[in-house]
Amino acid sequence: MTNENLEINPERSEYTIPLAPEGFKSGFVAIIGRPNVGKSTLMNQLIGQKIAITSPVAQTTRNRLQGILTTAEAQIIFVDTPGIHKPHHELGKVIVKNALSAIDAVDLVLFLVDSSVEAGGGDRFIVDVLENTDTPVILGLNKSDQQPENFLAIDATYAEISEANNWDSIKFSALTGTGLEQLQNLLIANLEPGPYYYPPDLVTDQPERFIMGELIREQILLLTRQEIPHSVAIAVEKVEEEEHITRIYATINVERKSQKGILIGKGGSMLKEIGTAARQQIQKLIAGKVYLELFVKVQPKWRQSRLTLAELGYKIEE
């Protein structure tokens, strides 16, 4: 697996891309599925380092985040897409369009489902989408550790889907790691010979600032749950790297004054709790001491504005 202390910054000049040995395989794999089926957890597990945020709240992932797994035999670039769902606002439309556009732009699709429950309408909507693509598909049955005793009936609903479309299927648990080695081998087997697309030590193509912002947003989702569901966006305004400490200044954008009050909390208690938890995660990311200062700003209806969405980093992928 990758070095936990690796600095994630693809602009570093010392990163070099070697020539791939004979028989080396590589390719881009989109992880597609409904919200909250474990896409980010799976990518983090396979890569061996936390780059995508996870939360009990559905629709955690917003941007197409690329994680890079390099072994002696292959390099897999995972595209962690947002959960495909019926959009209710402009942000939702951007999220779904970006997820769907990933399907035709990759070499392989891993269609992830929650195998603790039977296939539902949301899964079948994605099946209909995938039936219209030429990209090869593997059906991944996640959450095997959460299956009930009568799991055979559940598995049968997914077997029907995979057999009807002639897709390979595999069962595993992203949370416990059970079956992930077999999944990795299956993915590599379905890739074509190819070069290194990225330096072997790189684990994501996203800049460090983006990951920092995501780690802050994760703690907001975890600590506020339904009170501040998805009407929050993080802007990392400034990062000052000193010899013994990295100082980070970030703004939390919300849509209503009431949400600002919840985030700040009584006497600033909630903001302090969010900051402390996020700082600890960022320190793991950069392997160094962090000073984190958070501000809260009200941006009315930011999820409905294409201009504001673009300013906050939510652009439609072409």
Rank of each mutant, 00 (worst) to 15 (best):
E90I: 14
F151D: 00
S305V: 01
A119V: 08
L307D: 00
I252P: 00
Y196E: 06
D168S: 06
Q283R: 15
A277C: 04
F111Y: 03
N132E: 07
G313H: 00
L309R: 00
I282R: 15
A156K: 11
S258V: 12
E7K: 10
K315Q: 10
A99R: 07
M212Q: 12
S169Q: 13
Q146K: 10
Q59V: 00
T204A: 13
A58C: 14
S116V: 09
T204R: 08
S169F: 12
S13P: 06
V94E: 00
V96I: 13
Q226G: 01
E160T: 13
L130D: 14
K171H: 06
S173D: 09
I170A: 05
I234Q: 01
P35I: 07
L69T: 07
Y15L: 14
P195G: 13
A153P: 02
A277M: 10
L139Q: 01
E243H: 03
F24Y: 14
S269Y: 02
A164I: 07
N98K: 09
I154C: 14
I245D: 03
P18E: 05
T251P: 11
F172M: 04
A30C: 02
P195M: 03
D128R: 15
A20R: 01
K25E: 02
L152K: 06
I84Q: 09
A105L: 04
A156N: 11
W302G: 02
T276R: 08
R124I: 06
D114F: 14
E73F: 14
F151P: 02
Q219A: 13
L139P: 04
V94N: 00
D155G: 02
G121E: 15
S162F: 12
N9L: 14
G177T: 11
Q146D: 15
K257Q: 08
M212T: 10
K315L: 03
R34H: 03
V127Y: 05
W302Y: 06
T251L: 05
A250W: 02
S144T: 10
E118T: 07
L222E: 04
V79F: 08
Q75S: 09
E90A: 15
G268A: 10
E181F: 04
V298H: 01
V127F: 06
G121L: 00
S144Q: 14
L312Y: 00
Q219S: 15
S101K: 14
A174S: 10
F24I: 13
E255M: 11
Q49G: 07
G265I: 11
E181Y: 12
A52S: 09
T54L: 00
G67Q: 06
T16C: 07
Q226Y: 12
E293F: 03
I234D: 02
S231W: 03
F151K: 08
I8D: 11
